[in-house]
């Protein structure tokens, strides 16, 4: 989607002519395992949107907008939503109050911030791709995709 914005380094899906997403959801699985030690659709930081009919699937991940509207909208910025020195916006979930404003502020459809509104208030948190901050190998989803259809651009 061309929004006329500029983006920082982010995880992107390669075209099928390079590698077809096998639809295994490994990226989602690895993401929540690496971050939280569980597998959970509520805790993944990127999403595979499955097409029932074509069986060709789309991986949606945060594009790391350089003007980071999600960060700007966070009422707890600096505590919940933070910026790296490189400008990567990430969420420190220990400070997140689960208000969902960052999710609403995301310019993409579907929003690239995972926010499960129906989750109990005490555990409701927003989650977004942090490029596996501090992980020497880089984003785990890219590393572990069995068909290497994810890359950092």
């Amino acid at each position: 989607m061309d929004t006329g914005r500029s983006y920082g380094p982010h995880v992107a899906q390669a075209p099928p002519e390079y590698s077809l997403c096998a639809g295994c959801n490994s990226c989602e699985i690895i993401c929540s395992l690496v971050h939280d030690g569980v597998v959970s659709p509520s805790r993944r930081r990127l999403a595979v949107r499955r097409d029932i009919r074509t069986m060709m699937h789309t991986v949606y991940s945060c594009q790391h907008c350089t003007d980071h509207p999600c960060y700007d909208k966070c009422p707890k910025k600096g505590t919940a939503m933070k910026l790296t020195p490189d400008g990567v916006a990430y969420i420190d979930e220990s400070g997140c109050i689960g208000c969902g404003l960052c999710h609403k502020a995301c310019v993409f459809d579907p929003p690239r911030i995972n926010y499960v509104k129906s989750a109990p208030k005490e555990t409701r948190r927003a989650r977004k791709c942090d490029m596996c901050l501090g992980r020497p190998e880089g984003p785990a989803c890219v590393q572990w995709c069995p068909v290497k259809c994810l890359t950092v651009v």
């Binding site: 390079y18 590698s19 939280d36 569980v38 597998v39 959970s40 509520s42 572990w144 290497k148």
Partner: peptide, 27 residues
């Protein structure tokens, strides 16, 4: 929307690499 919590995550990564010699290259 809940969690499945496996016991040994390092072992899961090990199995993912070992089981069936996964392709791990573009398809």
């Amino acid at each position: 929307t809940g969690d499945v919590r496996p016991y040994d995550i390092e072992k899961i990564f090990d199995l993912r690499l070992k089981m069936g010699s996964p392709y791990m290259r573009p398809s």
